[in-house]
Amino acid sequence: MLVEEIMKKEVITLLPNNTIKEALELLNHHHIRHIPIVNEDHNVVGIISDRDIRDAAPSTLEEKQNQDILNHNINSIMTSPVITVHPLDFIEEIASVFYEHEIACVPVTKDQQLIGIVTEKDLLYTLIQLTGIHEQSSQIEIKVPNRAGILPNITKIIGERKTNISSVFIYPDQQDRSQKIIVLRIQTMNPMPLIDELKEQGYDVLWPNIPGLRQ
């Protein structure tokens, strides 16, 4: 899945000479946490987060709060240069960017121009969709040897039952590296006949998979 498929295209921006106060108002009004700062040519020249503003704002514990600080230009506190991504990047890549740089938002640029924005929340939402949980379905897990050709055998059995698959995940078995666990969300309320068939064919079906609780 590509960044351009999940990014928000309407981006709220400010110019470097807008004030911190204006930024604060925008953040509160739109319930957002990041504002990219652009120049007249719509190039991204900085970014500010709600935390940058909080760092700059007077402490709520001080009796006489110096509100003048809020009249400073945002270029005095914005982060620059900015980490940006391309619309054709994969969403897995942004996940790594977030993880490595410990940030929660990246502007998307094309030809140096700002065209979108992706936040941690957008990414999490997409990951939730990828698990298939938004469609009515049951989940089964199958422990299989870690070698080629297993998955098509399993999906063939499911396909022959005219049962639609919402999502497939594969992850290594933590206890035994020679095994993998295939997690399937399938659109049926009655997975029992399928589970029986898989077991008959020698597959190890974990349903449900809770350590210490296999009956």
């Binding site: 949980i133 469609e135 009515q136 989940q139 998979n209």
Partner: peptide
């Protein structure tokens, strides 16, 4: 819980 059981919600 819908972790395993239909419909998941």
């Amino acid at each position: 819980t819908g972790r395993y059981l239909f419909p998941g919600t």
